[in-house]
């Protein structure tokens, strides 16, 4: 199996789907001539031409709406946001147009569009460029929210998202683009709505998604050296949430830590904990603990930024608490 970066896995998914279906097109800032702000769309303009790889002005609300309108009449747009921080200007179109159209038309008009781009913090980009917004979109019925952590998942989930008949919020990890991994060639589809056990273990469940999968896997590695076997569950899709996989793992380990990059208040982990306390109450040997980003705007200073982020040490400390160790 070829080894690809997360970036190139996404690029491969785009190329394959654009080749397969001529209704699929890509639009966004710098996706064409510049080859993508993060080079995810490298080579696509040359291959598919300017009608299918569309450079837009800096007009997030406008081009998100253009994507929704084109999808309403049968195209399958992929709208790239340079980062999800800038998509705040387009929230009206995502929430009030994309998510609502099917329902308020009584099922007549769907919006088969993908809205994608990097989310979360990179390094020292400070308060306005370092935010994780998945819980905002996951709150909205009518949207699906997908967040791959590995190159193989990135390809398989993006292909599924493009083929999906509903609007999909596809949040990539800005820090994951250079991560390498094996990626199946050709028709590799991962169904939306399925979590994946990235590491098996019987002592504690670590639930995570996107960049925090790496954090959880590092923590699990260190814990293993200490005789604690953590199971790492990568949600992959935030909405619809794969509660079955979550509950199966908690039923096995009886202890759980939920890790996420975003803020704690009404975060993704809050929803996961709600499911666990209701449907696995009798399985729990300890309260579920959450590890999240610090409840502050992201600071610029390197040491402060590190302190604000979820990391393996914080995960291990949380595991020790649910195991009543130390």
């Amino acid at each position: 199996m070829p080894t690809l970066t997360y970036r190139d896995a996404l690029n491969q998914a785009l190329r394959e789907e654009m080749t397969r279906d001529d209704r699929v097109f890509l639009m966004g800032e710098e996706v064409g001539v510049y080859q993508g702000a993060y080079k995810v769309s490298r080579g696509l303009l040359e291959e598919f031409g300017p009608m299918r790889v569309v450079d837009t002005p800096i007009t997030e609300l406008g081009f998100a709406g253009v994507g929704v309108g084109a999808a309403m009449v049968g195209l399958r747009p992929i709208v790239e946001f340079m980062t999800w921080n800038f998509a705040l200007l387009a929230v009206d179109q995502l929430v009030n147009s994309a998510a609502k159209m099917r329902y308020m038309s009584g099922g007549q008009v769907g919006v088969p569009a993908v809205f994608r781009g990097p989310g979360g913090a990179a390094l020292q980009l400070a308060a306005q460029h370092s935010q994780a917004f998945e819980s905002w979109y996951a709150h909205i019925p009518g949207l699906k929210v997908v967040m791959p952590a590995t190159p193989a998942d990135a390809k398989g989930l993006l292909k599924s998202a493009i083929r999906d008949d509903d609007p999909v919020i596809f949040i990539e990890g800005e820090m994951l683009y250079n991560v390498k991994g094996e990626v199946p060639e050709g028709e590799h589809l991962i169904p939306i709505g399925r979590a994946d056990v990235k590491r098996e273990g019987g002592d504690v469940t670590l639930i995570c998604h996107s960049k925090t999968v790496t954090v959880a896997l590092k923590a699990a590695e260190q814990l293993a050296g200490d005789g604690v076997h953590a199971e790492v569950v990568d949600l992959r899709t935030i909405r619809p949430l794969d509660t079955e996989t979550v509950l199966a793992s908690v039923g096995k380990t009886h202890r759980c830590v939920v890790v996420e990059e975003g803020w704690s208040f009404a975060g993704v982990g809050a929803q996961v904990v709600d499911v666990i306390q209701r449907d696995a109450f009798d399985e729990l040997d300890a309260p579920v603990i959450r590890v999240t980003g610090a409840d502050v705007p992201m600071p610029y200073n390197k040491q402060l930024e590190k302190a604000a982020k979820a990391d393996p040490a914080k995960v291990i400390a949380a595991v020790n608490r649910v195991l009543y160790r130390g």
Binding site: F25, M51, L61, G62, F63, A64, G65, V66, G67, V68, G69, A70, A71, M72, V73, G74, L75, P77, D92, Q93, N96, S97, M101, M104, S105, V109
Partner: peptide
Amino acid sequence: FLGGHGIVGGHIPLTTGMAFAIKY
């Protein structure tokens, strides 16, 4: 007839998108 829309101005970009699809 693709909707009455309730957010002032919100459907104007949708129309641009439909016109884009026509050109496409």
